[in-house]
C-alpha cells in the first residue's frame, strides 16, 4: 500500500514562496510518519529538511502539523491517520528555517524568563530531601513536558502577543511552583504573573489538545493563576486591605 505525503517546502535562500510537494511512500506494518519522511530523504528527495532524533516520542524534535493536528511525527502511526493522504506542515506561528524546520530560538529564550530551575527551600541536607509520592504527584503530569513547542505553536494568545510566555513556559514554571522542594515560589510567581504571563491565558485549551504527552497545561496555568492571586491577597492582607479577613 502507498500513501501520498504532501509536504510543505520552503527554502528561503532560493524560494519566493512556499509550496507543497507530493511523494509516494510505500507503507509497511508499524510505520510512523517519521519513518515515511526518512524514506523520502533516503530514497526520493535528499533535499527535504526536518528534525528528528529519538524516534520514540521523548526528545521533542519532530513536532509538526500533520493532517491539521499537532503531532510528533515519530509517535504517529501512519495507519492511525486512517487516510491515504498525509499533509505535513511545520509548526504554525514559528518562523520557518526550511521546509518542516522552524526557528525555536525564541521559544528557548522565553523559557529562561520563567526561572526554570529548582531553588532549594532552606539548607540542603547531606543526603536527599524527603518527598512523598503524594507530594510528587502534584508535578507528575507536568514533568512529562519534552519542550517540543507544539502547545506554544497552538496557543492563540501567542499568535497575537509575541511576548506572551506561552503554555510550555508557564507549565515549566508550574513544574517548580508545584514541587514541594522549591523555595522560590514568590519570585517565580511574580515572573509569571506579569503582563505577559498567566493572565493572558484565556483557557482556550488549544495547548491541551496539541500536547503529544497529554499534559493539561491549562490546568497548570490556572493553578499558577490561583497561587498568584492568593499571593496578591496575602500582600493586601498584610497591608490591612482585607480588614483582617483570612484569605487563601
Amino acid at each position: 500500500m502507498n500513501v501520498t505525503y504532501t509536504v510543505f517546502r520552503f527554502d528561503p535562500s532560493k524560494d519566493k514562496e512556499s509550496r507543497y510537494e507530493a511523494y509516494q511512500v510505500p507503507v509497511r506494518e508499524g510505520m510512523t510518519v517519521l519513518d515515511g519522511l526518512l524514506y523520502i530523504l533516503d530514497n526520493v528527495d535528499p533535499t527535504l529538511s526536518f528534525r528528528f532524533a529519538c524516534r520514540e516520542g521523548v526528545c521533542g524534535s519532530c513536532a509538526m502539523f500533520i493532517n491539521g493536528s499537532y503531532r510528533l511525527a515519530c509517535q504517529t502511526q501512519i495507519k492511525d491517520l486512517k487516510s491515504d493522504r498525509i499533509k505535513i506542515e511545520p509548526l504554525p506561528n514559528f518562523q520557518v528555517i526550511k521546509d518542516l524546520v522552524v526557528d525555536l530560538a525564541v521559544f528557548f529564550e522565553k523559557l529562561e524568563k520563567a526561572m526554570p530551575y529548582l531553588v532549594a527551600a532552606g539548607a540542603l541536607p547531606e543526603k536527599e530531601r524527603l518527598q512523598s509520592m503524594e507530594q510528587r504527584k502534584q508535578i507528575n503530569e507536568v514533568i512529562d513536558c519534552i519542550l517540543c513547542a507544539a502547545c506554544q505553536s497552538a496557543c492563540p494568545q501567542a499568535w497575537t502577543n509575541k511576548d506572551f510566555l506561552g503554555p510550555a513556559v508557564l507549565t515549566k514554571a508550574y513544574r517548580f511552583v508545584g514541587d514541594s522542594r522549591d523555595g522560590a515560589q514568590r519570585e517565580r510567581l511574580k515572573l509569571v504573573a506579569g503582563e505577559d504571563g498567566v493572565w493572558r491565558c484565556h483557557s482556550v485549551f488549544n495547548c491541551v489538545e496539541a500536547c503529544p504527552k497529554k499534559i493539561n497545561q491549562t490546568v497548570a496555568i490556572s493553578r499558577l493563576k490561583r497561587k498568584a492571586f492568593v499571593q496578591k491577597l496575602k500582600f493586601w492582607q498584610r497591608d490591612g486591605a482585607t480588614n483582617g479577613r483570612k484569605v487563601g
Partner: peptide, 23 residues
C-alpha cells in the same frame, strides 16, 4: 555515586520515592 545522586536530587530531579519518602 551516592553524592552524585544527592546532588541531582538537590538540583530538582523528580525521583520516584520509597514509602519513607527517600529516593
Amino acid at each position: 555515586a551516592p553524592g552524585i545522586i544527592f546532588e541531582m536530587e538537590h538540583w530538582g530531579v523528580p525521583f520516584s520515592r520509597t514509602k519513607s519518602d527517600k529516593i
